[in-house]
Nucleic acid binder design. Structure first.
Lengths: 332, 332
DNA sequence: TTGAAAGCGCTAACAG
DNA sequence: CTGTTAGCGCTTTCAA
């Protein structure tokens, strides 16, 4: 039923080794022989069995991608970058959602390792000691994206989140705002949210503004939690003139909630989001936001992983991609 | 270096067959033996090699998913449904983007087949005769989602797109609109867009309204193309009082463009979108739209595929999931 | 330039 | 209940 390398060998009157050589593009094959084999291959409709190949060669040309949630447009964009580069380098991707749940993550890592992936891309989430242990005994290269381990021992691709948050808040303060609120993402166990917080704090400090904890609240990056965040400020009886929000979707929630309270954006309230997802352009007023090159982060991370998998020497194992403040209509 | 089933067998003083049995949960193992083996396994940190297993058993517990574009939130949501069910049934997913490009699709199918996937999920795109040929010689089950083949020989999961479009347009007409415009998606080679067009046409006909080709235009489902579509109507010097748009993102483009022309939504113009993506709730006015259960389509398609892979009998190979008109603020 | 042969790590009869 | 023995389809020395 299935045609194997033996069938081709017989059909072409050569040994299976020769067939293997032509299939793998080994140059040590006489052109005549190569032609003969290729003809046999197409005549029989032979398709090399990647599983057998993987077993024999110990390479599967498959990488595991652990991503928090593919239905989140931020990660979806990242995934596209990963996949495009993977395809370019002839790798396939096994994609799994972790929901940033440590147990799931560990299970996924083990599952992927069992499938003999040649490398793993770990997106978002926190890198705990448990992860590190797994990675050490993994025996395949790992690259992190939009996250990093505290000790920075694992290669990673990120932007400078601290600086990015600083830039946004500093911009607001420099425009004269004295009370800039901040709606951050979940901070427990999240090194990225922590960095953003640090950037916020530093911007206050460098501008001689004292930190007011009433101006800080948290959401889960959803639109709804953005609305709730604004309500929280409202209930606290504080009316910031500017709000920096840790993601676009939440920022839009904040804006709509503010508008429901009769505020005009940006005249009564200026808002800056984070990520620069497609969403930022699809709302009115268009959202001013910290632009993060999501596709590129995925692409660069995958490229980095290919280097490790090919045992190329890597000059920079901790890539920081540029970010910028994309000014639009939610700020004056 | 890597610990194999042999190492475990030696460590536990049993044969490799016995180890294989306990690893695979075969009941024919004396509890004492099982315990002994399990201890050896954890002592050695043994992890079964799925590639070797796949070669021997001819099952990889991996399915291929061909999707137009994972960065598109519609497909991303669908992918999440697929992945969740796949995980539930212990399958992994190899995910690849096709951009609805036939050549890529064929390449992907062959690549996945080479990797010995146990089944394939084909999302969106057109199912041509070329596809069918590939599928026939594939030897593994295929399920289509948000598309179907003309002859309906391949199992599929969809909503009734014709009826869905009809419902939206009929709703508009019944409200008194005499000229309802339609911004459709690309129609060449796209059976779904075609169905929507048929639904639009039928709604006109059943309500005794003559079709006016000036009221019909096309976009590529992007926000920008939605804006352009409205401009097209404007240039044609026609001012529909209601527009049905084949996707939410385009609908929002239409709305913003209309607003830029001074129109009030929904007072001067009513708009209905399609899909009910998260987006529909994140704009003001909130978008009235045809709700399509994206997650469920993915989930059901994956479930259907598992049935075929397990050779279960399937009662209904062409699943039609329910849709409904979600009324919000972009209609009166 | 080609072939023979030994695995890769596991499953699955078949015996016992 | 357990062990023996063939492969699964391919890559990869090693010889020739």
């Amino acid at each position: 039923m299935t045609v194997t390398i033996y069938d081709v060998a017989r059909e072409a009157n050569v040994s299976m080794a020769t067939v293997s050589r032509v299939v793998n593009g080994n140059p040590n094959v006489k052109p005549t022989t190569r032609k003969k084999v290729n003809e046999a291959i197409s005549r029989l409709g032979y398709r090399p069995n990647a599983v057998a190949r993987g077993l024999a060669s110990k390479k599967t040309t498959t990488v595991g991608v652990i991503i928090p949630d593919i239905s989140n447009s931020f990660y979806a964009e990242l995934a596209r970058g990963i996949e495009d580069i993977a395809t370019m380098y002839k790798y396939n991707i096994i994609l799994s959602n972790s929901d940033e749940n440590i147990e799931k993550e560990i299970t996924l890592i083990n599952n992927m390792l069992a499938k003999q992936v040649d490398g793993i891309l770990f997106i978002g989430g926190t890198v705990s000691d448990v992860h590190k242990e797994e990675y050490e005994k993994a025996g395949v290269p790992i690259v992190l994206a939009t996250t990093y381990d505290e000790a920075k021992t694992i290669p990673s691709v990120n932007i400078n989140y601290e600086q990015a948050a600083f830039d946004a808040v500093d911009y607001l303060i420099k425009k004269g705002h004295k009370s800039v609120a901040f709606v951050n993402g979940p901070i427990e166990n999240n090194i990225i949210s922590l960095s953003k917080l640090n950037g916020y704090l530093r911007a206050l400090q460098e501008n001689g503004i004292e930190f007011d904890e009433n101006l800080l609240t948290y959401g889960d990056h959803s639109y709804e939690s953005g609305s709730e965040a604004f309500e929280t400020f409202h209930e606290r009886n504080i009316t910031p003139s500017a709000i920096f929000v840790a993601s676009d979707e939440m920022a839009i929630g904040v804006i709509h909630s503010a508008q429901d309270h009769g505020l005009l954006i940006p005249n009564n309230l200026e808002v800056i989001g984070f990520d620069n997802t497609r969403l930022a352009l699809m709302v009115r007023p268009k959202l001013t936001t910290v632009a993060q090159p999501m596709y590129d982060i995925g692409a660069v991370a995958m490229r980095l992983l290919t280097k490790y998998m090919n045992k190329e020497t890597v000059e920079d194992s901790h890539v920081i991609l540029p970010h910028h403040l994309q000014i639009r209509q939610s700020t004056k």
